[in-house]
Design a protein around this nucleic acid. Structure first.
Lengths: 109, 109
DNA sequence: ATCGGTAATCGGCGATCGACGATGAAGGCG
DNA sequence: CGCCTTCATCGTCGATCGCCGATTACCGAT
């Protein structure tokens, strides 16, 4: 008993936290969560006030972490929050803080 | 309305997430949370299996992020989870995910 | 086929990270 | 006093990060 959290799980959790380890990405995720509808990149670029390439990089990180989903719309690409992650990411915080794991694994689709 | 989360808040949240952006630190925090009593560094070193200097660095990061508290005990230093953070860190996850901020600010002591 | 608008990718920059061994500082004990 | 024990700090290394401008790729429309 009392040994460490499984390394794989720790790595998975850490990758989630790392995706939010940048203030700009925190702003983007919170923005997408609050708007709760697919938004084109241009609008996000305007909101955060950074270069388009920079925002695109951040969106790539968030997409790979499954925080964000993307759908092509004509020539554009619309990003939106991943509703599953809204539900299961805070549970990761609980696990790390020693609370019983609330059921759902972090394997969000 | 519908503009970005305040930059200062985003930076504060990001610094919390960054502190957990490493699997070893996730393991350390979860370990301290589950044991829930002050532990000497040597025990943590034994648990994670890394060099003592490396673990000390991780503990410094976690201490500066206020996830962990330290108290000197004789020649040793005992680390323990910060109970306040156990309560208020998951709320950061909620805020980022667009949920209403559950009261307490992140300014944990 | 070419043009315009949208967004991803590339290459480079300085800064930070995570790991280590070695060294240093502080306290207890003979 | 000297000597462990315990832990923090230093210096270094390669790797990664965050940002940018420039370029490329894609698609719709002319």
């Amino acid at each position: 008993m009392a040994d460490l959290l499984d390394r794989g799980t720790a790595q998975e959790y850490a990758s989630w936290f790392r995706a939010l380890a940048d203030p700009t990405r925190v702003q983007i995720v919170e923005y997408l969560a609050r708007r709760d509808r697919p938004l084109p990149v241009a609008e996000i670029v305007a909101a955060v006030g950074l270069a388009q390439s920079t925002v695109s990089q951040h969106l790539k990180v968030l997409t790979e972490a499954r925080f964000v989903l993307v759908e092509p719309v004509g020539t554009a690409r619309h990003y939106r929050i991943n509703a599953r992650c809204v539900a299961c990411f805070p549970s990761a915080a609980d696990v790390v803080m020693g609370r019983p794991a609330p059921n759902r694994s972090m394997g969000c689709s």
